[in-house]
Lab assay of single mutants.
Amino acid sequence: MIFPGATVRVTNVDDTYYRFEGLVQRVSDGKAAVLFENGNWDKLVTFRLSELEAVK
């Protein structure tokens, strides 16, 4: 189960963010908004829950 605050990895091989890890900001309607941070940039991207896996 994916909840806000969880760290997730993108599993969709066709996505630009494949294998990126980010922090879930919100979850609704089968989608999750994931925040990616890297140095001087932040990006908030929405994914279907089926495209994400929780990082242990």
Rank of each mutant, 00 (worst) to 15 (best):
S28E: 14
K56R: 11
F36V: 04
V24D: 00
R48S: 12
V34P: 01
K31I: 12
E53A: 07
W41Q: 12
R26Y: 15
W41G: 14
V13M: 09
Q25M: 15
R26A: 14
E21N: 05
R9D: 01
G5S: 04
L49F: 08
R19N: 15
K31Q: 10
R48Y: 14
N40W: 08
R9P: 02
L35D: 03
D14R: 10
F47M: 04
N38F: 15
R48P: 14
E21I: 14
S50E: 14
D15K: 05
D14C: 12
E53L: 07
T46M: 11
V24I: 04
G22Q: 00
T11V: 12
W41H: 10
G30M: 05
L49E: 04
R9H: 05
E53W: 05
V8Y: 02
D42Y: 15
K56H: 13
R19C: 11
D29P: 05
D29H: 09
A32W: 02
T46K: 04
V8G: 00
A6K: 05
G39I: 09
R48L: 14
R48Q: 13
G30Q: 06
V55E: 03
T16C: 10
L35P: 00
L49T: 06
E37Q: 15
E51F: 06
G5V: 02
W41I: 13
V10Q: 00
V27K: 02
D15V: 06
V55R: 04
K56G: 12
L44E: 09
R26K: 12
G39W: 08
V8N: 01
V8I: 05
F3V: 13
A6C: 12
R26I: 12
A6R: 06
V24F: 01
V55Q: 04
P4S: 06
L52S: 01
N40L: 11
A32S: 01
R19E: 10
T16M: 14
F36H: 01
F3A: 11
V34N: 01
G5Y: 04
L44T: 10
L49V: 09
G39A: 10
F36I: 09
L49P: 03
K31N: 09
M1W: 11
R48C: 11
L35E: 04
F20Q: 13
S28D: 11
N40G: 13
V27Y: 03
E53F: 06
F20A: 09
R19W: 09
L23V: 15
E21R: 07
M1G: 14
A6E: 08
E51T: 04
K43G: 08
V10G: 01
L35I: 07
V10Y: 00
T7E: 05
N38A: 11
P4V: 14
T11I: 14
D15W: 03
W41K: 10
N38S: 11
T46N: 08
A33P: 00
F47A: 00
E21F: 08
V45F: 06
G39D: 10
W41R: 09
R19P: 06
M1N: 12
N40P: 13
T16P: 15
T46A: 05
V24R: 00
N40A: 11
D14H: 14
G5A: 03
S50P: 05
L35N: 04
D42K: 15
R9W: 10
G30A: 05
A32P: 01
E21K: 07
Q25S: 06
F20I: 07
D29N: 13
D15N: 15
R26E: 14
K56C: 09
A54M: 13
W41E: 13
T7F: 10
R19G: 15
Q25I: 15
L49I: 10
V8W: 00
E51Q: 06
D15I: 05
G30D: 08
V24A: 03
D15E: 05
F3D: 04
A54K: 08
N38D: 11
K56S: 13
D14Q: 11
E51R: 02
G30P: 02
S50D: 14
G5P: 01
M1L: 13
K31M: 14
F36A: 00
Y18I: 01
Q25W: 11
E21D: 04
E51I: 04
V27C: 06
Y18G: 04
D42H: 15
S28R: 09
R19H: 11
L23D: 03
Q25L: 15
L49M: 06
M1Y: 11
V34H: 01
S28N: 09
G30L: 04
E37C: 13
V8L: 01
L44G: 03
D29W: 07
L44P: 06
A6S: 10
V27S: 02
K56N: 12
G30T: 05
K56T: 13
L52H: 01
S28I: 10
R19V: 03
D14L: 14
T16W: 11
V45E: 05
A33R: 06
Y17Q: 03
L35W: 10
L52T: 00
L35G: 03
